[in-house]
């Protein structure tokens, strides 16, 4: 089993795993072989990270909004995007992964809603650029297009199942805003 192996079919129909839905704005990681992360993506992007040595995997799910008015020059809120990616990386490291071992898959980023100008493309480009800058190898991507996707990911084995689903199954597009409680507040001791 590896990050390149798909999740095998389960003809017996037995429910082998605990399925955990990764919601928009979440980043989860685990080395638990009984967990399967699952998410449905329209314009949102999911990053799957896997450390083949420590057998730790993680997934996030994000859709970045336009940047705040005081941060011109970028098309999406890169500050919040880097924060969400760092949350995922830190979750991985706290469970024993090493950053230099990390390999990535990217999914989603469809332009499902024609009224939203290529927001999926912009989010996909942000994710690719983040991985490039961090030196994290992108092993597989299925990005763009106009169809929603469902991604199932087993963090302990790195196995992935990707399916196209009807757009109505994708959650409504809600650009991710910075959480109200996390606005870069400063506390001097």
């Amino acid at each position: 089993m590896s990050f390149e192996s798909p999740i095998p079919p389960n003809p017996s129909g037995a429910p082998p795993l605990e399925r955990v839905t990764v919601m928009q704005g979440q980043a989860l990681a685990s080395a638990n072989a009984s967990i399967e992360y699952s998410t449905v993506l329209g314009s949102c992007v999911a990053t799957c990270l896997f450390d083949p040595q420590s057998k730790v995997g993680g997934m996030n799910h994000f859709l970045l909004s336009e940047p705040p008015a005081n941060l011109p020059g970028t098309q999406v809120d890169e500050h919040y995007g880097v924060y969400l990616m760092e949350l995922l990386v830190n979750q991985m490291l706290s469970r024993g992964a090493r950053k230099s071992n990390l390999k990535a898959h990217l999914y989603g980023g469809a332009n499902v809603n024609r009224n939203m100008m290529k927001i999926g493309t912009m989010n996909a480009e942000f994710a690719r650029e983040f991985l490039r800058r961090e030196g994290i190898a992108l092993m597989r991507e299925d990005l763009g297009g106009t169809s929603a996707r469902r991604v199932d990911f087993r963090p302990a084995s790195g196995q992935v199942r990707l399916r196209t689903v009807e757009d109505r199954f994708a959650p409504p597009v809600q650009p991710t805003l910075r959480p109200a409680l996390s606005t870069g507040d400063v506390e001097l001791f």
Binding site: Y83, V186, L188
Partner: peptide, 22 residues
């Protein structure tokens, strides 16, 4: 022995103000 604590994602204006203050 830290002087201050700032939570990401940082706000550039707040960060700059904190740097100037310390």
């Amino acid at each position: 022995g830290a002087t201050g604590w700032i939570v990401k994602p940082f706000d550039p204006e707040k960060l700059v103000a904190a740097v100037r203050r310390v």
